[in-house]
């Protein structure tokens, strides 16, 4: 691909940048590990979207309405 192609130049910019990282490699490792724990473990197994089980906005609203009017002080 031509070195004058802007997309290729952007690609080279990032590729060279990542390749020449030193401390950055450790930091990227940490970022990826953190994101894996957050999304593949915590989000998946511990943080279900409670309102996500309702198919429609109306069903969500009905559920919350039920919750808000169900509490007896």
């Amino acid at each position: 691909m031509s070195g004058h192609n802007p997309i290729y130049r952007v690609y080279r910019f990032y590729a060279d940048g990542f390749r020449s990282m030193t401390l950055g490699r450790t930091l990227w490792g940490l970022i990826l590990l953190k994101l894996f724990i957050m999304f593949a473990v915590l989000r998946l197994f511990f943080f279900p979207d409670i309102l996500g089980q309702f198919k429609t906005e109306e069903a969500k609203s009905d559920h919350v309405l039920e919750q808000l009017t169900d509490i007896q002080p």
């Binding site: 930091l27 990227w28 940490l30 970022i31 953190k34 994101l35 957050m38 915590l42 989000r43 511990f46 943080f47 279900p48 979207d49 409670i50 309102l51 996500g52 919350v64 919750q67 808000l68």
Partner: peptide, 20 residues
């Protein structure tokens, strides 16, 4: 790098613990 995305967990908590 270490701080980035730590705030996303707050959004997880909104969806699960604080759905109302």
């Amino acid at each position: 790098a270490i701080g980035v995305a730590t705030g996303i967990i707050l959004e997880f908590e909104f969806g699960t613990n604080w759905s109302n």
